[in-house]
């Protein structure tokens, strides 16, 4: 009896969640449908959900008139470089979580403080620094300001605090070096948070707009975000073209996410962390 009612409840919750998911996802459906609408339909009122005469002309324009192919490649490279940051953040998180050392408190406070610094203020000093380091106009320069975030270090430290200290001590007694302990014991145990961080880093790098725009002297280094904003003309804009650009940005990341999601879920299930 109890099981039946519990099942019923689950079904009810599922239905509610399904309805919620539709609402949440609706802007995406609208965007995708808008991206295949010809220009004449995009201004139609009342708005129609589905295009009458779907067309891929908008996408053709993006790749033809604008260099969206190149922007796509650049975006992928920035994503790849950014993955190095995940490892750096994991290392720092481990350092803060499992060692006691001089200056740990103040340094961790600095990590937290970086989360509170408004981005706008960092723009000019960071640009001057990158310029001084001759990193402007490189994809490294595009990726490096966002490589490490206080948020990420914080998250890693919190989760790694729960890695049993006994396991680390035991490994040390067995003569394992610190690097080995980190790679072989701590990182594998941190798989769930690692998965979360990889996804977060992917999202951040994929959507990066500010640094590609500022650091690049050349549109050879622009990313998709910058490309989409190029479509914003001062006054007039073509909604269909914009929707196509937006679709191009959103759909690949959705696919990556859906593929990766299973791994994240697995990571969660494997974890014994709290």
């Amino acid at each position: 009896m109890r099981i039946v009612s519990s099942r019923r409840l689950t079904a009810a919750i599922g239905a509610a969640l399904g309805a919620g998911a539709l609402v949440t996802a609706f802007p995406f459906l609208w965007m995708i449908s808008g991206s295949v609408k010809p220009r004449s339909e995009s201004a139609a009122y009342p708005p129609r959900l589905l295009p009458e005469a779907p067309t891929f002309e908008n996408f053709a324009q993006l790749f033809g008139r604008l260099d969206f192919g190149r922007y796509l490649v650049n975006t992928l490279v920035v994503v790849l470089i950014s993955m190095a940051g995940v490892v750096l953040m994991a290392m720092a998180g481990y350092g803060f979580a499992k060692f006691r050392f001089r200056g740990r408190g103040p340094m961790f406070f600095l990590v937290l403080a970086t989360m509170m610094v408004p981005v706008q203020v960092t723009m000019i000093p960071t640009y001057l620094l990158l310029n001084g380091m001759r990193l402007t106009n490189t994809l490294v320069g595009v990726a490096i300001p966002g490589l490490v975030s206080g948020f990420g270090v914080f998250l890693f430290r919190q989760f790694m605090s729960a890695v049993p200290t006994e396991m680390i001590e035991a490994a040390r007694l067995d003569g394992a070096g610190e690097a080995r302990i980190f790679w072989r014991i701590v990182l594998p145990l941190s798989r769930p948070i690692l998965a979360v961080q990889i996804v977060l880093t992917f999202i951040g790098a994929w959507n990066s707009f500010l640094w590609p725009l500022i650091v690049a002297d050349d549109d050879r280094l622009y990313t998709l975000s910058v490309g989409v904003s190029l479509l914003n003309r001062q006054i007039a804009t073509s909604p269909s073209l914009q929707m196509a650009g937006a679709t191009l940005m959103v759909v690949p990341i959705l696919i990556v996410f859906i593929v990766f999601q299973r791994h994240i879920v697995q990571g969660f299930t494997l974890s014994g962390l709290r």
Partner: peptide, 21 residues
Amino acid sequence: AALLLAACSLVLAACSGTAPA
């Protein structure tokens, strides 16, 4: 390991080609 990472990033950057300033 850290060095390797840095090197990887640099190589990637090099591959992507630095545009003439």
